[in-house]
């Protein structure tokens, strides 16, 4: 199991690096799916199988598919890939990358400096999660429902293409 964890971790990191370095959006998304799947494996090794399933379904499934739909709607071409290439110059990425690495170093230092015990890996099954969700976190669940509602309404409202709806006879008569 430990080996699985480390291998999955390595795959997750590599896939993510591929995502952020790829110029082609569809390829990047495919790597993203790989990354999400690897993270799902990590969840599994950490004893959260239900979360692993959700990760696969929602992240790797729904969200990525949604993004792919949008990309298809936008009708991107090879030019956009070239565009990405011109945008992604070392000059632009080296500064932010260094900054982020400093942040990572500090995070790592914080994590390692603390003398933390190893995980004794008690699986928490879906039943407990369900009880917690509909017990003490009921309010949070309702808020999530509202958030999703707002997301749907907002997406509908924003995504609407405002077209003039004029009857063709009227249009002609106006001309």
């Amino acid at each position: 199991m430990e080996l699985t964890f480390y291998v999955a971790s390595a795959i997750a990191i590599l896939a993510t690096i591929m995502v952020i370095t790829n110029y082609n959006m569809i390829h990047a998304l495919l790597y993203l799916v790989v990354s999400f799947l690897a993270v799902a494996v990590v969840f599994f090794t950490l004893g959260a199988p239900f979360m692993a399933a959700l990760e696969v379904i929602i992240y790797a499934g729904a969200i990525v598919v949604l993004i792919i739909f949008v990309i298809m709607m936008l009708n991107l071409t090879n030019e956009d890939v070239q565009q990405e290439k011109t945008w992604l110059r070392p000059k632009t990425w080296i500064g932010p990358a260094l900054l982020s690495l400093v942040l990572l170093a500090e995070l790592a230092y914080l994590v390692i400096a603390e003398d933390m015990p190893t995980i004794n890996n008690q699986p928490v099954d879906a039943r407990e999660v369900g009880l917690a969700l509909y017990g003490p976190y009921l309010l949070g669940v309702q808020l999530c429902g509202m958030l999703l509602m707002a997301g749907i309404v907002g997406a509908y409202h924003l995504g609407r293409q405002k077209k003039k709806v004029v009857h063709r006879f009227l249009e002609r008569s106006e001309i």
């Binding site: 900054l99 500090e106 995070l107």
Partner: peptide, 20 residues
């Protein structure tokens, strides 16, 4: 947008460094 995010990151780095 990126400059704003950079600002946020710089702030986070500064605060973390200070706390360290």
């Amino acid at each position: 947008l990126r400059n704003y995010i950079t600002g946020v990151v710089v702030g986070a780095v500064l605060i973390l460094t200070l706390s360290l």
